[in-house]
Design a protein around this nucleic acid. Sequence first.
DNA 1: TCAAGTGTTTACCGATTGGTACAATGACAT
DNA 2: ATGTCATTGTACCAATCGGTAAACACTTGA
Lengths: 189, 189
Amino acid sequence: MSRVVAERQDVIATLAETFREHGYDGTSLSLITEKTGLGKGSLYHFFPGGKEEMAEAVLGDIAAWFRTHIFDALRNAEDPAEALEAMFTGVDTYFRQGRRLCLMGVIAASGAHDRFARELNGYFSDWRADLAATLERAGTPEAECSALAEEIVGGIQGALILARSLDDPGAFGRVLSRLQARSLMASAQ
Amino acid sequence: MSRVVAERQDVIATLAETFREHGYDGTSLSLITEKTGLGKGSLYHFFPGGKEEMAEAVLGDIAAWFRTHIFDALRNAEDPAEALEAMFTGVDTYFRQGRRLCLMGVIAASGAHDRFARELNGYFSDWRADLAATLERAGTPEAECSALAEEIVGGIQGALILARSLDDPGAFGRVLSRLQARSLMASAQ
DNA sequence: TCAAGTGTTTACCGATTGGTACAATGACAT
DNA sequence: ATGTCATTGTACCAATCGGTAAACACTTGA
């Protein structure tokens, strides 16, 4: 039983990397079969809904990870400034210093975006809301919080695309530090 | 002769919107046939290299547009501050107030990114370089220019993805104004 | 008038797509 | 030992994929 769950988690992790690298439409079942080592029989046993259900599972998994590791940490932190710092380092690690794309962004920029609109909307609006609240707790002027949160969440997505396009992962870290510095400046006002 | 060129330009414009909306892998030849009203024969007459050549033509067209309307305007402007303002309003118009994605970003976030790596790299590095130079001419501290340009170019991409994901085009304009304000602040120092 | 492009239509190609059906296998509790 | 049920391999499906071939019409300059 527990082994089954663990294997399913492994499959989801492999699916995530495959979708990240090839996009939703670029990920064929044969590619999934190759990457996961699972035949169609197994795949459709775990995900009766086929490719769409696989992507949903992956997006759900990612959303859960961010919820527990980033969003909850922002909301529950005693020291909001500390939580902000943890968010930036956590994000830098998660996206492998700019070498890994965000699957939410990948889907949003693909033709499949309307099929997963709910997941995308939830992810980004949760992040924006929790970040804005934490910025305010950290002392950022109230009028500034929402816009700054929007700028940071969007900036992270853009930095990932920029890093990949320029073939320069370092660009991600540079933009990230600037965004972090801005959140510090705002809360020091 | 001139009509042929005009028609080809129309086809490229339709191709661009189709790729933007459906991504590279999500754009099939039958979809292209439907959107352009051209059969395969005509399509392969104009673009013997098939889908890849169509995308290349579109990317080339977009790069040329930005070169003449944005990059050159930045470089040749007498008043750099004015050129910066023109860039932000031009970008806002081009991306239809956040309702239109950037095809360069769409390709970068897709599995086809390595096939068009040269185009992507050229677009983003040109933009970054010309923007950085203009920021410096506008009085931005030298050490700040390159990083700020990077932040702005990336920020625009991220804002487009954010706007689409939140189904809130206005988010694009809000981020854009903040980026513009920042470029003004930096050059006022 | 006629040859030479320039476009377009239509039929077709093998390969691959996402998905289904089902028999075989395996582990495991009774 | 046996029945149950989760898991898997294989064969198969119609539809669509990107691309090719060749006959066809239209314009145009000589």
